[in-house]
Amino acid sequence: MKNLIAKYTAGLLLSSIIISGITSCQKMERPEMNIIPDDTARMNAPLQIYLPFESSVLDSAQYQKGSANNVTYVDGVRGKAYKGATNALLQYPSALKMATMTSFTVSLWIKTEKHTGGAQSVFMMPNTGDFWGNLFLMIEGNNSTTDNSMLVKFNFAGNWVEFNGNNGVNRLPDMYGRWRHLAFSYDAATSRFAAYLDGTKLALPASVTDRKNGQNPLGPLQFKTASKFVIGGYQQHIGIPNNTADSWMLRYTGALDQFRVYTRALSDAEISTLYTTKQ
């Protein structure tokens, strides 16, 4: 009997100690934790797509996995690079916050050879409600044996910039057969467009840099019905707004590396750094 009473008493004492310990822990004052999911900052960051093409279709900025058709990889400016073909392209399922960005910077490295017969699309953010995409870069054909300059056309929210040698906008020099870095930006705060070649801002006339909406500054961009994102082809090649691609619409056959889109206009120094560090 005494043994039972002793065991019972010991059990009560142990329970009291445990309960006391728990209660004391619960009464400890601790600062309230404000937990922010890791992906919140990432999803809202200016860098909305970053494709290093390390033999992978994964977007290293937002972790979207692309869907590739006949894409191969070659040595790039840094590691591996995307290699296009006449039947190749890469698409991503969402335009993410690029769909609502009011400013932007696009940065990329390209290495390509001359082509004929039409215009190759390097990339495009589609517009499901229009023939033209929301944001894209095209390279026109060049069949000259002596002229190594490139005629490129850049479009953002319906604003065309054509580097065609007219109106003070020169064709891009010595662009074929070597790696060149390109960057394009637009700043909604100043309504100014800028283009860069190998880290250096190009001298463009005010008619190109100072974007207007009638007589007023253009202001914040408004992309329309943006959907998906395409590397190496036009939106028509992925069925937007339909599956009918004109004969002049060619897929990009060159190499592409370190492709980035930011939702803000980078500074001259930042773009220069992307070039010098081969990012």
Score class of each variant (00 low, 15 high):
residue 44 N to I: 00
residue 45 A to L: 04
residue 46 P to A: 13
residue 46 P to M: 09
residue 46 P to C: 09
residue 47 L to V: 01
residue 47 L to C: 01
residue 47 L to I: 02
residue 47 L to F: 03
residue 47 L to K: 07
residue 48 Q to W: 02
residue 48 Q to H: 04
residue 49 I to A: 08
residue 49 I to D: 00
residue 50 Y to V: 00
residue 51 L to D: 03
residue 51 L to M: 06
residue 51 L to G: 04
residue 52 P to H: 13
residue 52 P to F: 12
residue 52 P to M: 11
residue 53 F to A: 14
residue 53 F to Y: 15
residue 54 E to C: 03
residue 54 E to D: 13
residue 55 S to L: 11
residue 55 S to K: 14
residue 55 S to T: 12
residue 56 S to P: 00
residue 57 V to T: 12
residue 57 V to P: 08
residue 57 V to Y: 10
residue 58 L to G: 05
residue 58 L to Q: 12
residue 59 D to L: 11
residue 59 D to W: 11
residue 59 D to I: 06
residue 60 S to N: 08
residue 60 S to L: 07
residue 60 S to Y: 06
residue 61 A to C: 01
residue 61 A to R: 11
residue 62 Q to H: 05
residue 62 Q to A: 06
residue 62 Q to P: 00
residue 63 Y to N: 05
residue 63 Y to R: 12
residue 63 Y to A: 10
residue 64 Q to K: 15
residue 64 Q to F: 13
residue 65 K to L: 07
residue 65 K to T: 08
residue 67 S to K: 11
residue 67 S to Q: 12
residue 67 S to W: 05
residue 68 A to H: 02
residue 69 N to V: 12
residue 69 N to I: 10
residue 70 N to F: 10
residue 70 N to C: 05
residue 71 V to H: 07
residue 72 T to R: 15
residue 72 T to S: 15
residue 72 T to D: 10
residue 72 T to N: 15
residue 73 Y to I: 05
residue 73 Y to W: 10
residue 73 Y to N: 05
residue 74 V to A: 15
residue 74 V to P: 00
residue 74 V to C: 13
residue 74 V to Y: 15
residue 74 V to F: 14
residue 74 V to K: 15
residue 74 V to N: 15
residue 75 D to F: 00
residue 75 D to C: 01
residue 75 D to H: 01
residue 76 G to V: 04
residue 76 G to L: 07
residue 76 G to E: 12
residue 76 G to N: 09
residue 78 R to Q: 06
residue 78 R to L: 03
residue 80 K to V: 09
residue 80 K to A: 14
residue 81 A to K: 04
residue 81 A to G: 07
residue 82 Y to T: 02
residue 82 Y to E: 06
residue 82 Y to F: 12
residue 83 K to A: 14
residue 83 K to G: 10
residue 84 G to S: 03
residue 85 A to V: 00
residue 85 A to G: 10
residue 85 A to Y: 00
residue 86 T to Q: 12
residue 86 T to K: 14
residue 86 T to L: 06
residue 86 T to G: 08
residue 87 N to L: 08
residue 88 A to H: 03
residue 88 A to C: 02
residue 89 L to S: 09
residue 90 L to F: 04
residue 90 L to Y: 06
residue 90 L to N: 06
residue 91 Q to T: 12
residue 91 Q to D: 13
residue 92 Y to W: 03
residue 92 Y to G: 04
residue 92 Y to S: 04
residue 92 Y to H: 05
residue 92 Y to L: 04
